Amino acid sequence: MGTWGAGLLDSDSAQDFLDQANGMPVEARSTMVEEILVRVAEDPSVVNREFVPEEVVAAVAVVAATAARAREFEWMNNEALVEVAGEMDPQNHLRDAAISALSAVTGSGNSSLLSGWKNEDDRRSMERQLDEIRSVLRDS
C-alpha cells in the first residue's frame, strides 16, 4: 500500500475504495458502504482478511461526510470523498455501525493506522482526524 500524506484518505487503498464507489450509482454506493461497515461492526476479525483498515476508514468517512455536509475538516477536502458523498443522502442509519467499525480498526494499540508513523506530527494528525470523524458521527 502506498501513502502520500498523513490524511485519513491519503493512501492507495482508501482512494481505490472511493474511486470504485464514485463509479457506481448512488444507491450502489450506499449499499457498498453499508455492507463493509455492518460486516466489520459484526465481526472485527474480517479486518485485514476481507477489508484493509484504510477501506473501512474511507467507508466511515463517507458516512461522516454525508452527516456533516460542510467541508470544515481537513479530511473532508478530499475531492474523491466529496464526489462520493456529495450525491448521497445522510447515512444516519449507519452511524452506530460506522463508530463500531472505526473502533475495530483503531481500537488496538497496534493498529496499523496509528502505528509505524516516522513523524510524530503525522501520527497526531491522523489521530485528530479520527477524533473529528468520531465527533461528527456522535453528533449526527
Rank of each mutant, 00 (worst) to 15 (best):
D121N: 13
V84A: 12
N78Q: 11
W117P: 01
T66F: 12
G109E: 13
N92G: 05
M76S: 04
E87I: 12
A65M: 03
A85W: 02
P90A: 09
R128G: 08
L130I: 15
R124K: 15
W75E: 10
G116R: 01
L114S: 12
A70L: 07
G86Q: 02
A68S: 11
L114I: 08
A80R: 13
A59Q: 01
L113P: 11
E83R: 13
S111V: 02
D121W: 00
D96Y: 00
D96C: 04
M76K: 06
F73P: 04
M88V: 11
V105S: 07
D89S: 10
A59S: 14
L113Y: 03
A58N: 03
F73V: 07
A101C: 13
V60F: 10
A101E: 09
E72D: 14
S100R: 15
V56F: 05
E79V: 12
D121L: 04
D122S: 14
V62S: 03
S115L: 10
A64K: 05
N92R: 14
V56H: 06
M126W: 00
A65K: 02
T106R: 04
L102H: 03
R124A: 15
S125N: 13
N92H: 13
S125E: 15
S103G: 15
V56Y: 00
G116D: 00
T66N: 08
D121A: 14
R71Y: 11
A85Y: 05
L102Y: 13
G107D: 07
V105K: 09
V57A: 03
R123N: 02
Q91V: 04
N119S: 08
R69I: 06
S103P: 05
E74T: 13
E87C: 01
A59L: 02
A80M: 04
A104M: 12
A65Y: 08
A65G: 14
G107Q: 07
A97K: 10
S125L: 14
T66K: 12
E79M: 08
L81V: 09
S100A: 15
D89R: 10
E120L: 07
A64S: 12
V105M: 13
R128P: 00
A58M: 03
S112L: 14
A97M: 06
Q91M: 15
S111Q: 08
L130E: 08
E127N: 02
M126Q: 11
E83L: 13
E120W: 08
E74K: 10
V84H: 02
S115I: 10
K118I: 00
S111A: 15
S111K: 04
E83P: 00
G109M: 03
E120A: 15
A70S: 14
E79T: 06
A98G: 07
A64P: 09
R123L: 02
A80P: 02
M88T: 05
A61W: 10
A58Q: 11
F73H: 14
A80L: 11
A64G: 06
N77W: 00
A68E: 15
A68L: 10
L114Y: 07
A80S: 06
G109Q: 08
K118V: 00
S100N: 11
A61V: 00
S112C: 09
E83F: 07
A58H: 07
D96W: 00
A61L: 06
L113A: 06
D122R: 09
S108I: 05
